[in-house]
Amino acid sequence: MPVKTLTINGQLVSAREGETILEAARDAGIRIPTLCYLPGLSAHGGCRLCLVEISGSSRLQPACVTKVVEGMEVQTHTERLNAYRRMIVELLFAEGNHVCGVCVANGNCELQDLAAEVGMDHDRFEYLHPNRGLDASHDRFGIDHNRCVLCTRCVRVCDEVEGAHTWDVAGRGANSRVITDLNQPWGESATCTSCGKCFLACPTGAIFRQGSTVAETVRDRSKLEFLVRAREERQWHV
């Protein structure tokens, strides 16, 4: 398999052809913040946290979708990128109701971790305090739309791994929502198999297990990784 060499933050890195900058960086032990990215799912390119600078290109590029090119020089943590990332996380916190102290995912939330990672000590933007509603009609899971960051991981995992396509996005702009089936209550969904993959994929406390209370959410992501790897490596034959 042809190998490409590139530099990330001045460090020489080799990558397989067709790999993304994000994959190459992770293999080399360089962490780039991400939110909408989840290994095994198609890339979305929506959260913009993984933007990196590439020499010779005036545009910032998302590391999760940009393929490596021989000789590429990538910077992942310039002052400008750090400032942008912090602002993006602030925008996310201001957009929803992320009150960690009363959230099921407290201590086990990627948004919370990102806030710490980008050094967000306060939010410079006005909180919008949306009232987007909550759906607890499903007997095993629920969704609090006020905690949703619209990463669409639930949509993609349900479509691409489970094959049910229960979830989709409706509305646009700030009114976007993830919906089940044709915007029916989740509990009435004819397609949902109750497999719980959306719960495993969700980075925040938006999708939760019924009956869990503050800081009780535990997600076993290794289950998803197991499924994805098994499928990619064709470990099961039907």
């Binding site: 933007f125 646009r172 702009g173 700030a174």
Partner: peptide
């Protein structure tokens, strides 16, 4: 722009709302 943003990416979806404010 705020009304017409598709909502896919955070800077545009949430940023235009804050700019408008």
């Amino acid at each position: 722009c705020m009304d017409e943003s598709c909502g896919k990416c955070v800077p545009c979806r949430a940023g235009t709302v804050q700019l408008h404010r």
